[in-house]
Amino acid sequence: MEVAYYPGCTLKTHAKEFEKAALKAYRAIGIELKELDKWYCCGTVYSLAKDNIMYKVASVRNILNAQKEGFDCLIVLCSMCYNTLKQAQEFIKDESNLARIKAFMDEEEYKGIEILHGLELLKDKMEEIKKAVKKPLNRKYAAYYGCTLLRPKSVAIDSYEKPSIMERLIEALGGIAVEWPLKNECCGSYNIITNKEIVVERVRHIIENARQRGAEAIVTSCPLCYFNLKECQKDVKRIYPGFEEMPLYYYTELMNEAFNGKFDKGENNNGS
């Protein structure tokens, strides 16, 4: 099965290993992720001002473009891109909103397209996933959803208060998924630029909670959560010398580890 795929800027630069692992892992269960011929930065955050149409234009252009390339469903792997594109898609479901946006672009008619996160695609592929496992994972993992896969409600890929899709994936791969309350709490997001000390405290809180629940590693699909958790753990360690860093993985990396029997980190591993 071939599906259209939107990478976004970060999977092409900072989080190359996420994309690399994804292409390989999805192929192993019979899904070919076909990158759109043409795509633009989605804007990373959806504009929340009612009167600001300009910031929504880039997202809508991406959606129309996927349609133009002949697709009726678009897969996104980066959680932030997913959230932004999905909210834009929700926005243009309303005819009058679509008309306002279309004033900025003279393109073909919008027929409606589905936007799915890569994890949603795995929901009914658990049997295929189990079959593809060569060496079951044998550690305890905390699935970290953060914000953008779950909120606002209109974009939630699963129950927005109690998601379980990543846990089901971890278990299908042979790992143990721990239950923990902070799995859908914010890591501080773009505060990393302006208020890093806040993010450092958030990260300490999140990691300690995962550890207390028995986790040995964190699994995510958001490159910003990944970066914040990874980088800020170093700062936590400087402030609290007894703190032990916990490894982080993109969910696609875990899939490959179980499918290939060895862990293969991409070329770019964020300087760690």
């Binding site: 976004g8 800027c9 970060t10 630069t13 900072h14 989080a15 930065c41 804007g43 990373t44 955050v45 980066c78 932030m80 891109c81 997001s189 773009y190 990393i192 630029i193 302006t194 490159p223 910003l224 970066f227």
Partner: peptide, 9 residues
């Protein structure tokens, strides 16, 4: 920093 951090800020 990843691009999503800079662009969102």
């Amino acid at each position: 920093l990843p691009p999503i951090a800079i662009v969102s800020a």
